[in-house]
Design a binder for these strands. Structure first.
Lengths: 276, 276
DNA sequence: CCTCGTATGGAATATTTATTCCAATTTGGT
DNA sequence: ACCAAATTGGAATAAATATTCCATACGAGG
């Protein structure tokens, strides 16, 4: 058996897998490289696809994809798939226990915590690719691209998200308006037909954000939304919703999926405007 | 063949399935009801589990779970599973074609863009985990945990980052103060010995942020910094710096690494405070 | 308490999917 | 252009998984 695929350690997390991928991709022969590059971009498909499907999508024979898995250190496709399926089955360790552990470990704690959050970020991004439909994103991008002004609202966690959009839109020259918490009640007065409202709110949903969405929607203005649950009341007033579910560590969520999604959206809107 | 499970229409979407579930659950025998109630609560498992797994989780024999699928109108478990897997692959019917197209064509749709940004997010997170040293993070976490107040500054892109820290600190009960752009010149007056300044700035570095760091550092106040380059001028005044390099797509960066790092930091600070 | 129809779970079978093998092809070196 | 080594893809085999069958257990109605 060839020992070119020397490092026999089996990746035990998405991070490790990606690291391995990056470390070995340059030494791989052509077809295996194809597998690597397709897989890297479509990690989310692994959990629900068969080898043949992945092989076909990568443009190679099943046996080649098989060898690709082995080159990564797995015994075969099933083992690699297990890594991705585990995420859905995984028992969520309760975070009381988790934080308690952090106390004891002291110095080692923060490093471990960072690794956990990074891993959780990977998972959020994978899940994002799973969940978001092309059409929804397209539709919203188009709606924003043709709007007179895009109004952004979001409070608390969501404010971080809209503030990043606001920065990007500003930098890109897309007309946008960030509404701050204090003035939100009056915000409706600055929104006119031809504008678009982008409302971001996560469970438990902010009353003010929902209210504003309702008010402007009733005036015939297009509303889009971003949330983390399909129970979000903004959905009732929105012509399209995006859902970004964030994985959590010890009960805390970073905003990887949301920020990635909104950054994409901003760039897409700009690209659409350029085209016309 | 029994016609109790009268409505033979195959559910074509998750909502139809749920409707059917709710409509038939009362007429089902005991074990099938078990399947129904477990399944309703764990729909997301179907895409990645085998019949036996679902059966065991529901507390029944595989053959019973099989009959449950049929009672719902499906020909068997595979058909039902297909419904859930389709979610992940957008269009089931032309799945294979679509994947083939995807791999040959670099179509510039929003879907492709999202995949690129997600990919870039993975890279940022990997580099984050490799770059950040345990000691630096530890040191900053300890410094913040023992501070009277943590002052947060950052403009433009960096503002998104500090605003998310501000939200988290607030939620966690860590005393923190977010300085907004307009008032920043006067901010120095509100910072006292025993406080800590956390300054975030990315290249090209914001003059105001650097200035503030210099001012308070010269007054003997501890400064920490987060940036994306080791040329950051805040480093001169800071007792410790964090560096988060963000990968980019077409010149645009999402903030995955920074947000992940600061979220980790916030949680670590809180955990350290709890200990004492 | 018996009887019949229904429900159940384990075991048998069919089907799909993963994995290995090997002949054909390509690649890189001389 | 030739050879040796590596890579590839299709076909064969192994394994896992879905699905059906049937003997047994159960429960409602007599």
């Amino acid at each position: 058996m060839s020992e070119r695929t020397s490092n026999r350690a089996v990746p035990g997390s998405v991070s490790e897998l990606l690291e391995k991928l990056d470390g070995t991709i340059d030494d791989l022969p052509k077809r295996l490289k194809q597998c690597a590059s397709f897989t890297r971009k479509h990690l989310h498909l692994i959990a629900v696809s068969t080898v043949s499907e992945m092989a076909r999508a990568s443009g190679v024979a099943p046996s080649v994809y098989m060898r690709f898995c082995q080159a990564l250190g797995f015994s075969g496709y099933s083992e690699m798939q297990g890594l991705f399926r585990a995420r859905y089955t995984e028992f969520r360790p309760n975070y009381e226990e988790r934080l308690a552990k952090l106390h004891e470990e002291g110095a080692v704690g923060t490093g471990r915590l960072l690794a956990d959050f990074a891993e959780s970020g990977h998972k959020s991004l994978i899940s994002l690719a799973n969940t978001v439909t092309n059409e929804g994103l397209d539709c919203i991008a188009r709606g924003m691209a043709s709007a007179r002004v895009v109004h952004l609202v979001g409070l608390r966690r969501a404010f971080t998200v809209v503030s990043s959009m606001s920065y990007l839109f500003d930098k890109l020259g897309v007309p946008a308006n960030l509404h701050y918490g204090v003035g939100m009640l009056n915000a409706a007065g600055t929104i006119f037909p031809g504008d678009v409202l982008f409302a971001v709110t996560y469970a438990p949903f902010s009353e003010e954000t929902v209210q504003l969405a309702e008010t402007v929607a009733k005036r015939g203005i297009t509303v889009f939304g971003l949330t983390d649950s399909d129970r979000c009341p903004v959905a009732e007033w929105a012509s399209a919703m995006l859902i970004a579910r964030e994985d959590e560590v010890a009960g805390f969520r970073a905003l990887n999926a949301s920020i990635t999604l909104t950054t994409t959206l901003a760039v897409a809107v700009r690209a659409l405007q350029e085209r016309s």
